[in-house]
């Protein structure tokens, strides 16, 4: 859902990261290439050309222009002026942007750590046992992943409204004193949006870990039992190591989602109250369109891209380093 909304990008990052690791090395030493093969490879280029062209126009060229623009001050109207690194130092000097970064770290807990912990524990508890109707459960739990993010945002906005169901439930249980406008509350708005993110990412984690556990040879579990391992030790000696690959994928996906949260914030609080739920992408949108400071917006985009790349690489590296 919302967290992983534009996750087409994030998705493949992880997919490639995960898959590259598993696939056997392909046609490695291709020392001499026959004329026939070479012709085929030119033909291959022809097949690739349309995709490459579209990709260059839509992704590569703007990416390069973005880097360039990030070194300028530009209001979208008058001439752009050279800015050096001024747009980047905003990450240090600009309180709004600094806050946005802090919120991103906070969101990582809700969009990544929490769903992973929940997903892994619930998968460990249930996946190895024959549960009839597990398909139905899986369908439900994965559902948020396919729901339209804009719809999810509208739903959560209503759920957290002062007259929404959460407050009704609290009142019904005699906890009327706890009711509030959750999204207008400085303490609660950020965790409230975070929980919506947990809700969205949990299913992905659980299903993925569930699939992973199915693939762990049951002999390993039997052996652990023989050694007299309790469920806890079983989890740490068998399940967790067996899920390392899945963990890498999920970590990449959810963290990339967390640093790019936009829809749910924009459609609910617009970063408020004050700036208490503002995220880098919301700042980017504001600077790019609401009060044009295009260079600053591009700098945020560049930093997001670099951080995404680093996260993907680091996670892949970590998950495979001690193979």
């Amino acid at each position: 859902m919302s967290t992983l909304s534009e996750s087409r990008t994030g998705k493949v990052a992880a997919a490639s990261a995960g898959a590259e690791g598993v696939r056997p090395p392909l046609r490695a030493g291709r020392a001499r290439v026959s004329p026939h093969r070479r012709r085929r490879r030119w033909l291959g280029l022809a097949y690739l050309a349309p995709a490459l062209l579209v990709y260059a126009v839509v992704v590569l060229l703007p990416a390069v222009q973005g880097v360039r623009l990030s070194f300028y001050h530009w209001d979208g109207v008058t001439s752009a002026t050279w800015a050096g690194f001024a747009n980047y130092t905003g990450f240090v000097h600009d309180p709004t942007l600094r806050q946005a970064v802090a919120h991103t770290l906070f969101f990582i807990v809700f969009f990544s750590v929490l769903p992973i912990a929940l997903g892994m524990s619930s998968a460990a508890l249930t996946a190895r046992r024959d549960v009839r109707g597990s398909g139905v459960y899986r369908w439900i739990i994965f559902l948020p992943q396919v729901l339209t993010p804009a719809v999810a945002a509208v739903v959560w906005k209503r759920i957290y409204a002062p007259a929404g169901p959460i407050n009704s439930v609290l009142t019904a249980f005699g906890l009327g004193g706890l009711t509030r406008g959750w999204l207008g509350d400085y303490t609660w708005a950020l965790p409230a949006l975070g929980l919506a993110g947990t809700w969205g990412a949990y299913g992905l984690c659980m299903v993925l870990f569930g699939a992973g556990i199915q693939n762990i040879p049951s002999e390993l579990y039997d052996a652990a039992r023989m050694d007299g391992a309790g469920p806890l030790r079983e989890f740490f000696t068998v399940t967790l190591p067996g899920l390392r690959g899945q963990l890498a994928v999920v970590l990449t996906l959810t963290m990339l989602g967390a640093i790019r949260v936009f829809d749910i914030v924009w459609l609910t609080t617009r970063g408020g109250p004050g700036t208490s739920t503002i995220t880098p992408t919301v700042v980017l949108y504001q600077r790019a369109f609401a009060n044009p400071d295009v260079g600053a917006a591009c700098a945020i985009g560049v930093v997001l891209a670099v951080v995404s790349l680093i996260i993907s690489l680091v996670v892949v590296k970590l998950s495979e380093s001690d193979d």
């Binding site: 906005k157 957290y160 409204a161 002062p162 009711t179 509030r180 406008g181 999204l183 207008g184 509350d185």
Partner: peptide, 8 residues
């Protein structure tokens, strides 16, 4: 309005 900070 009560809880106006949470009302659209």
């Amino acid at each position: 309005t009560k809880d106006y900070a949470g009302v659209a």
